[in-house]
Simulated scan of single mutants.
Amino acid sequence: MQEEMLSEDSRDFVTALASGLEVIQAFDHEHPRMTLSEVAARTE
């Protein structure tokens, strides 16, 4: 199965970037390590 790459012109690219930034911002001084479930809960 061939994966489709997100182009910089794609709205999906911007959405993926925004989601990634939310994940990064979920980590802070009080939450330096989290499970995937914890990250999902903090980023909704």
Score class of each variant (00 low, 15 high):
A40K: 13
A16K: 03
S37K: 15
L36V: 14
G20A: 08
S10G: 01
A40M: 11
T35S: 11
L21I: 12
A18R: 08
S19L: 11
L6P: 00
S19Q: 14
A18M: 04
M1A: 15
H31D: 04
R33K: 14
V23Y: 08
R42I: 01
E3H: 10
T43A: 07
R11P: 14
S7M: 01
E3K: 09
V39K: 01
L21N: 14
R33P: 00
M1S: 11
Q2N: 13
L6M: 05
Q2V: 14
R33F: 13
F13P: 00
G20M: 07
H29R: 14
E44R: 14
A18L: 07
H29V: 14
L17N: 02
A26Q: 05
L17Q: 09
A41Y: 08
H31W: 10
A41E: 15
E30T: 14
A16M: 03
M1R: 09
A16N: 03
E8M: 03
A40P: 01
E22F: 04
M5E: 13
S7R: 05
E3Y: 11
Q25K: 14
L17F: 05
R11I: 12
F13T: 00
A40Y: 05
E4W: 02
F13N: 03
A41L: 14
E3T: 11
F13R: 00
S7V: 00
A16F: 05
S10K: 01
T43Y: 04
H29I: 15
V14W: 05
A40S: 10
E38M: 03
T35Y: 00
M5Q: 10
D9K: 09
S10M: 01
E22W: 05
Q2C: 06
E44K: 13
S37V: 12
E3W: 07
D28L: 03
H31Q: 06
